[in-house]
Structures are given as C-alpha cells and as structure tokens.
Design a protein around this nucleic acid. Structure first.
Lengths: 213, 213, 213, 213
DNA sequence: GATGAATGAGCTTTCATTCAT
DNA sequence: AATGAATGAAAGCTCATTCAT
C-alpha cells in the first residue's frame, strides 16, 4: 500500500472530489461515471483513462482518505507525555475532527460498512482494527496507571465513539432541522456540531472510565 | 399514512422480504428489479404491477418497518408504573431488539440516512423526531422526579443510542472476525451481540443520567 | 448439442439471417449489434434478450448451419447402393451445393478457420473431422472394391475439395469480373458457378482416384 | 504502386510485423491499435503518425507482401528453358513456399477475400488476375507444344491451386491435431506440410494436364 | 520528429418499465 | 389478475485519432 504515493494532477483531483461527493450522495451504483465526469468538468473517458474503472476509482478514494486517518492515528500514538484521559480526549477530538471535515467520505464509509458495494472491505477492516487496537492500548495503559476503572468493554466503547460520531455526521440535516438552525451557515453549524459531539463523547468516556464526573 | 392498511398477499410478502435483503446488501441502485424478482421467484413484471415502481417498492418496505418501530415506541409510553431508569432500560432493550431482529432494514435505514437514494426522507425524520421526543420526555420526567442529573445533552444521548446500535449491527461481520467467533452460528452471535450492546448502553445511560454506577 | 432443438420465431430468424450476412461481410468485430438490430428491423435490446450476447449469437448461427451440414453428410452415408465414384460425385455435389447456397456462412466459416474471432473452434473441428472421416471411408471402400487406385493422400483430397469450393465461393465477385459476367443476375451466376466447380472437382477426383479420364 | 519504395525504419517494421500477426489472429476490427502498439513496443500515437490510420496500416502490409508475390511470379515468367510441366511445378513450389512462409499474411488474405474489412480490394484482384494470366499462359504454352491435354478449365485449376494451399495453411492447427503431430515443433510441421501440399498439387496438375500419372 | 494526454464517438449490455394478451 | 415479450434509455467502457508540447 505504501508504494502508492498518490500524486494526482489537477484533473484527477477534480474527479476524486466530485466522485467522493456523488458516491456519498447517491451510492456507488447511483452515481454514474457520466454524472461524475460532467460535474467534474472532464471528458467521460478520462475516468477510465486515469483510474481504469469505476471500481478502481472508489478504491482510489478509499486509499486516499484511509491513509489520512491511519497516519493521524499513528501520530497520536507517538505522543508520550499526556495523561491517559488526555490521550483519550485527544483521540476523540482527532477522530471527530477527521470525519467532520470529510462528511462525504464519512457517508461513503458508513454505506460501505452497511453493505457490499464494490468497496475494498479489507481496507476498512484494517483501519477499524487499528482504531480498536489503539483504544484498547490507551485504556489498558490508563488502567495500569490506576487512572481508569477496571471493568471496561473496550470494543463497545469504540463502537460508541465511531457509531455516535458517524451518526451525527450523517444526520446533520435532520439535526439542523430539529434544532431550528436552518438559517445559520453550513460551516458554522458543522463547527458547532463538531464541538458538541466532541464534548459529549469526552464526558461519556470520562464518566465511564474514571470515578470523576 | 394511516390509510395504508397493509394487507399483502404471499407473493407481495416474498417480494418485500427479498427486496429488503437485496437493498440492504447492494443498495437501492445496486439491486435490480430483475434480481429481486428472480430471488423472490416471481415474474419480473409483478413488481411494477404490485408496487408501481422500484421507488414505491422501497417506500413500502419503509412504511412496513417504520410503523413497527413507531407502534413499539407508543406502547412504551403508555407503561406508566416503571421507574425512570427502568423506562430508559426498557427503551434501550426494545430499540436494540428491534434493529437486531431486522438487520437488513437497519442497513437500509443507515444507508438512507447517509444518502438520498430515492427514499422517503420525511418518514425517516418523522420517526427520528418521535424517538427524540420520547427520550426527551423520559429524561425530563426522571429529572423532575430527582432521579436523573440535570445537565444532560439529550439529543446527543439519542445519537449515542441510535448510532452505537446501528454501528454494531452493520459491523457484525467485522466484530465476528475480530473476536474470532467465526465458528459459532449467525443467530447465536446476534443474540450475544444484542445482549452486549444492550448492557453497554444501559451502563452508559446509568452513569451519565445518575450518580450511581 | 442434440437437445438444442432450434425453434426460432420470426424475429429471431430475422436476427440470425441478418447477423449471418453482416458477420460474413464485416467480420465478428466489424459488425456491430446496432447494425444487426437496425438491418434486422428489431430493437437493439432484443439481441441480448434472445441470444444473451453477441458471442452467443454467432454460436447460434454456427450451431444452426453446422447441424445442416452434418445431417446432410449423415444422409449420404446411409445411401448404400451407389458405385464408389458415384458416391464421391454425390458428396461433391452435396458439399458444393451446401456452401453455394449459404455463401454468407461459407465466408464466416473461412474467417473462423483463418482466425480466432470468438467462434466455437471445437464445433468447426468436429464437422471437419466428420467430413474427413467420411471421405476416407468412401475412398477406402472404393479401393477395397478395386474401383480406386491405391496411392491416395486422402486428407489432401479433402483439402482440395473444401479449399477449392470455399475459395470459389469467396472469390465470386472477382470471378464475375474476370469473366465479364457482371451483367447477369447474381443467382444465375451462382448457379453456373456451382455447376462449374462441381464438374471441375468431379473430374479432378476421377482422374486421381481411377485410371479413366 | 510503383512509387511506394518502401524503406521502413526499425519501429515501422516492428509495427508492420506485429500488426500482420494480430490482424491475422483477430481480424481487422478485432485487433486494436492499442494492442498492436503495445505488442510492438511503440507509442500508441506512432501508428497514426507513421501510417496515417489503421486502414492505411493494413494497406501498407498488403502492399509490402503483395509486391513480394508479384515479383516472384515475374521472375518465374522470365525463366525460358524449362519444360511446360516443370514450369507448372516450379510455380506450385514457389506459390506454396510463399504462403507457407507467410502464414499470417495468408490468413489476412483469406479473410480479405471472404469479406470487406477495410482492405484494398483492387490490389487483391490485381495480383489474382496476374496469377491467373500466368497460369493461363503456362498452360496454353504447354498445349501448343503438345505437352498438355486440350480440355482444361484453367481458372478452376487456379482456384484449386490457391484454394487448396490457403486452406491447408489456415487449417494447420486442425491438421496437426488430426494427425496426432502435436508433439513436433511448429517449424518442422510447417516444413512437412509445405512438401506434402506441394507434392499433392504437382500430382494433381500432372494427371489433369497430361496423360501420364 | 516523437509522444503522453486527452477526446468524441461508438461499443455491448443491462436497466426499469410497459405492452398485448 | 397476471405475465412473457418487448423497448427506449442509460449504463460502463474502449475505440481510433488528435492535440500540445
């Protein structure tokens, strides 16, 4: 995977961005290469020319984004001098920020997990495993240091972290409506949401992992 | 909605079940009416004949399942003589059971929220709103009775409930692999999972809502 | 193969005939299903609908025609009471008539032997083997009866029979031009040609197989 | 035609050879310029650049090979001091050798005669006419000298010569299989075949043209 | 002179739907 | 009421060729 140093040119990036958005909005089969090409303002033959096929296009999107996440997580691990809970908080912030800033890809990921739509399943499993291992490590460390309680269902905590974050992102439109915030700008709302989910999850992890509130 | 007293005949039910499964597995556009008709062992023209169109077919699936959930929630509300936390627990159990038993529809719902795939958005919003209102009511009641703490982000708690549950269901295959439980039967694993998510969420709500652990 | 009782309807026959002609004129890849559909005056989707694919269409053509030839040969074998040379003459007449009457299929066959264009090679080999075996049998019979000479290269005689006949058919246009017969009708010319090739080959076989002229 | 003094450079020759092979194997439309360029190890744009178009490429192949044949025939005519039958034998040898050594081009020729695949028909007709005129001349000479019989269908004899030779070449694979010679090398088999066809045709012409056996 | 990038046109096949019975 | 036959539209992809350098 590491050999795939992705240096895409301008047109390729246009295609990738447009495809990400359309795949997110309409699903893999719901977004046609014709539509993608048209919205990306490139010739339809370019997609096959650059990426080989529609399937390889979505794989390229996955590769591009997943590497981002993996690299982010790796970085977190290296940071040694934080307290256990601070590390957890950092992780939450980082994860929420990552998927908040890539809402389209978040939707694709959710779809991909829910189904099998010509999507590289192994890649997804790999990054999920890494996430789980990381959280497990952080929690075990905290427990060894006596900072965290003993009886924790780590995997379920990961599911809550990922599931809640994802769900908030994909329910954005609904939440905006429910809270009567349809007037404010997309970006501002997303920023508010990011903070709110972050805080919620931090609180959740704190009360579960420690004795404090 | 109320006029839609759904009395489907055998063939219609076959179509609905098969379509639910295939839509869940391959997405709305990924599942062709040909495939659905073939797997449901009915003539291909039957789908248009009975449901009008592919879109109306998936709407029928939604209507059928969503009514189920709504009715379940209504029932819960009526039950007056439970303690606040017991009501929350009951809700969690009920919700988790509902989507655990309908994993295909759960996947469709998740997809539908993540995107717009010719799916009745309003219906989804309606049932989500109802869910939110119900939780809000339960929490407020608990707070009035002094059983729950004051500073609760209700909407985020709903997101955690729904998001975690959904995520566990759609990640079933991954979890099975990670836990090396690939040998045991599908049903048994689902049962275990149901219990585990239930307990996890109950614990989560308890430590967040009350002072106890 | 025998289960394929080919009972084609009118439209299917139109498609088969047109496809045979266009495949003969432009080759497998040179004749598009669009063109075939248009010239056969059927909807383009009908070809996939009836035959599955372009490849299966040409296979159907082969199956249809090759069965004809095979059945013709089988019939000849049964005819017991002819003299050896008369049998050979009968075979020549029959073979020449067969491919003269199906000039399009003759061209397809020639192309198919010359190359590999998504054509059922085994079917061709099978019918060629049958042809060879039949000629071998006729010549051996004649030799046993003392009617034919001993030193005959049977396979090469078959090659001459088939090669000459094919070549005359596919060179029709050239021959017509060389002989300045461009004025006479297609059918009449073909009839003349059939007779001429037939006589030529009969004479050839006679002088090679026997002592007479 | 005579102005086309063909002095091709290395890359052009690579293209011509590869194209000849691929056209022979898959037909004109079945062989893409992409495939040709790739197998010839040249840039895809080179083909249009050097030859103008795909059609002009196959024309170049024809021109190159047909000139060969024509020149060979011309040479034969000049040779005065051979007996009539010896001249015929020489012609047979020369012709069979020519197409045996160029099996790919032989296949292209056969295809070209069978159909119209963007192939220079006039060129083919021209060389065929020359061949016919030559044989006619040789036979007439022989008849004048009293060496040959009078009643000869010259054109059909040409058809037998060309048709049989072609057919043997394009049926090579089948013959190899029928004779259980699949073990021996390609070259050796081709050599054997060349001799066998040659002898067969010589014998054929001898018994038809003369009284001897 | 030579080539990687790019393109419009065309390919085969499948789609959801409708028609005639 | 129910269905096999049929269809126009659109799908993903490859084609031979041209363009800009």
């Amino acid at each position: 995977m590491e050999e795939a140093i992705m240096d895409y040119n301008q047109k390729q990036l246009q295609i990738l961005d447009t495809a990400e958005r359309l795949f997110a909005m309409h699903g893999f089969h719901g977004a046609s290469v014709r539509d993608i090409a048209q919205e990306a303002d490139v010739n339809i033959a370019m997609i096959s020319y650059y990426f080989g096929s529609k399937e390889r296009l979505i794989e390229a999107i996955f590769l591009k984004r997943v590497m981002d996440v993996k690299n982010g997580l790796d970085e977190l691990v290296k940071n040694k001098d934080l307290a256990p809970l601070e590390k957890i908080n950092k992780l939450i912030e980082l994860f929420v920020a990552k998927i908040s800033d890539r809402p389209y890809f978040c939707r694709i990921m959710v779809r991909a997990q829910a189904t099998q739509e010509g999507v590289p399943t192994e890649l997804i499993h790999e990054v999920k495993k890494q996430m789980y291992d990381l959280v497990k490590k952080l929690i075990t460390e905290g427990q060894k240091k006596g900072a965290f309680l003993g009886d924790i269902d780590t995997m379920m905590m990961v599911n809550t972290l990922v599931g809640t974050s994802n769900h908030v992102i994909i329910s954005q439109n609904f939440l905006k409506k429910v809270w009567n915030q349809e007037a404010i700008s997309e970006d501002k709302f997303r920023q508010q949401l990011k903070e709110r989910v972050s805080n919620h999850l931090k609180k959740l992890f704190k009360v579960v992992l420690t004795d404090e509130r």
